[in-house]
């Protein structure tokens, strides 16, 4: 189409083509991303016999059963892993968010010498891949006597979560007009009151985005727990699944998948709950005084 003269309906048609394009691309991604979880869910509902039989259509369970889930939920070690993941993540999220909110506030608002350099530095540390760090960290952790203690994760995960979370929060706090804190300062607020009563509520979408980020780092981590933890009472869910449900070359697929579903449930529930805020958080800067 080389028509430069706008014919009636041509804009409409253009828009339709764009929509078609978008839907096709999006459908493709939806399929690619959702097939594995779907297969995971289906497999988790099959008995070991049905899985190993390899007969019939593999996309749905022929005789659905909750046996895998029952076994897992009745297993002390599995519940232990799950609980470890929960408390590690809870502590990591709280610690990371407290540190990043405080540091982002200080870096973006207190205006001390070197704040600019420091905020760039904070961000740069985020660019170092964690997988490069775990060997040197092993020495430090060993020196601290924390090998095979879940506390090592509580110590290490914030170092991964804080830089990026701080960076998100700095962006958010910087988009809050300076007059807002000045007005609050004149109204009689202390810096702490400004942070708690003005900045945190106004930057809530950003805080939620950063929280989800910290949550994901801790909940989904595999490398560090694998490297530093080994005994059953210290291991977290991700490592626990591999540890218990794969024996040599025997994969308990049904239970692995059920464990994955249980492991994926908390993030899914949290994301769904916070989705609106999260999306708002990704389109930062939408706060305006």
């Amino acid at each position: 189409m080389s028509a430069t003269i706008a014919r009636p309906g041509s804009l409409h048609r253009q828009r339709q083509w764009t929509l078609w394009g978008s839907y096709t691309a999006l459908s493709f991604f939806v399929v690619v991303f959702l097939v594995p979880p779907f297969y995971m869910l289906m497999t988790s509902l099959k008995s070991s016999a049905e899985i190993s039989a390899e007969a019939g259509n593999p996309w749905y369970p022929h005789s659905p059963t909750l046996a895998n889930y029952m076994t897992l939920l009745g297993s002390d070690s599995f519940m232990r892993y799950f609980f470890n993941s929960v408390w590690v993540t809870a502590v990591v999220v709280v610690v990371s968010m407290v540190i990043s909110i405080l540091s982002a506030f200080a870096l973006s608002r207190m205006g001390f010498k070197g704040a600019q350099v420091l905020s760039t530095g904070v961000f740069l540390t985020y660019l170092i891949p964690p997988s490069l760090l775990f060997i040197p960290l092993f020495q430090i952790v060993g020196w601290l006597g924390l090998i095979n203690s879940t506390w090592v994760l509580v110590l290490l995960f914030p170092t991964l979560a804080v830089p990026f979370a701080t960076w998100i929060m700095i962006g958010y706090f910087s988009s809050i007009p300076k007059e807002l804190d000045e007005a609050a300062l004149i109204d009689g607020a202390s810096y702490m009151q400004i942070l708690v009563q003005i900045f945190i509520p106004v930057a809530l979408p950003g805080i939620i985005a950063a929280t989800i980020f910290a949550f994901t780092i801790s909940w989904g981590a595999f490398l560090y727990p694998l490297a530093y933890l080994y005994s059953a009472d210290q291991v977290t869910l991700t490592v626990g699944i591999v540890r218990d449900l794969i024996r040599g070359d025997v994969f308990a697929w049904g239970m692995i998948m059920a464990a994955c579903v249980i492991g994926a449930a908390p993030p899914i529930i949290i994301y769904t709950f916070l989705m609106d805020y999260y999306v708002a958080g990704l389109t930062a800067g939408s706060t305006k005084g």
Partner: peptide
Amino acid sequence: VPPRDRDIAMVFQNYALYPHMSVFDNMAFG
């Protein structure tokens, strides 16, 4: 003397209202 102890009030060009508070709370904040 810090601003809050000077017993002054200021009106800004861009209003600087607290966006998450109602009009009542904005006025009541101080």
